[in-house]
Design a protein around this nucleic acid. Sequence first.
DNA 1: CGGCGACTTGACTTTCTTCAATGATCGTGG
DNA 2: CCACGATCATTGAAGAAAGTCAAGTCGCCG
Lengths: 247, 247
Amino acid sequence: MGSDRATPVVDLESVRAVCAGCSIQELCLPYGLDKDDLEQLDRIIERKRPLAAGELAYAEGDPFRALFAVRSGVLKTYLLEAEGEEHITGFHFPGELVGLDAISGGIHACSARALDTTSLCEIPFDRLDDLAGRIGGLRQQLFRLMSREIHQDDRERRNQAQAVADPRLAAFLLDVSGRLSKLGFSATTFRLKISNRDLANYLGLAPETVSRLFRRFRERGLATVQSKEVRIHDPERLRALARSLEE
Amino acid sequence: MGSDRATPVVDLESVRAVCAGCSIQELCLPYGLDKDDLEQLDRIIERKRPLAAGELAYAEGDPFRALFAVRSGVLKTYLLEAEGEEHITGFHFPGELVGLDAISGGIHACSARALDTTSLCEIPFDRLDDLAGRIGGLRQQLFRLMSREIHQDDRERRNQAQAVADPRLAAFLLDVSGRLSKLGFSATTFRLKISNRDLANYLGLAPETVSRLFRRFRERGLATVQSKEVRIHDPERLRALARSLEE
DNA sequence: CGGCGACTTGACTTTCTTCAATGATCGTGG
DNA sequence: CCACGATCATTGAAGAAAGTCAAGTCGCCG
């Protein structure tokens, strides 16, 4: 697994990519901006070459200079424990902003690594802040995105606080399903490039437990998860399970 | 336990309270503002009569109009489950902003209840947003506070993901200790107006387990917790325990 | 094709939960 | 001010659940 940083090499093709043509602009920073404002935002955004699976977007401790928007792919963010263990704090899909946790401290509070080929938009924060002062719509969207992050963290905490493991995994699958369907993907069949180990880490379970849970889900006809391919067969019962309303 | 909402009655005495004279302004929104800007912020802030223990600051589903800064006391925020159960998402001490999770949805995503006599500053969000457009320092501090919230949520998730219970409780005590000492209180002896049940709820444990953990902490000379009075005797070993470095 | 890592499966141990009963605390109303 | 009721905290015993350890299987990349 490569530990090398994303190099600032610019892909000439993608330089011309603009928010206006981006399929996820409605879920991202540009939401609600008119043409002029969008152009101003566009000008400060740097689009790098895609990261390969395993590459770092940034590392814990790096000076904070920019936020990153996921354009395609998946990212995991994680804290490093005393013994060098990772502790995964989240998985991030297109339209999501990462690096928000670094604003307050001035250095990145976690590391971000691509789990798949992943394209990012880099948004220098000082310039974004400046724009946010002048463009009310942008400022408000930034507030909304940060607020959404806080709200989702709270909801995820609720799931994690469940003592029993089934609802946690069920809630996770539904969460991902919902996020992906907002992007236009199928809510019932998708590819999840997250290893069993990473998933277990994120959910606070042993990898063996996650494996056993997937088997139970399959036996009960709730969902099939085989080699990263997820098929949700019974969203309703899965939802019930996520709320601990089912045995 | 009163379920009534905080009435908008204004305490004449506290109307004249201003950020400039507030002991926690360095931890709150005013941080870094000069006199003029501070005055502008001051003018939009409404200081209500203190909430009694058990009173609601706002309820899940209420339309979002304002953020609240805790000036004194403690607040708990919680989500309501399907069966009417609370799920506590956080405890909030002076200098902390609550309601941030409501910006994105336009309605409060959780409820906030006072656990003790609690004074709040109410900050109408549309006016705050307006000011944030004109005062760079205010905007940046708001970004910082939201960022800190996101970062702390991530760190709390790390604790919760611990399968074993001791480190979770140890981490919680240290977290509170740190937050209170920043306010000028003792880091080793403090009053924690949080019920055993609420604490267990927050940590995702059974109340009985929390009780047993406190007994073990006492037997091992780590900390004493009796009727809301917390005494941390051995911060170092508690820290080691929080990182699972101690048996 | 070989080897390495990730996933699966089983047996056993540890830990927390649950259930139940007792004891302490707090607020209230007499 | 005290007595009562209710809620909350503590403790014990039994059961359920996930963790750990270990071995075997699968799949992927070199």
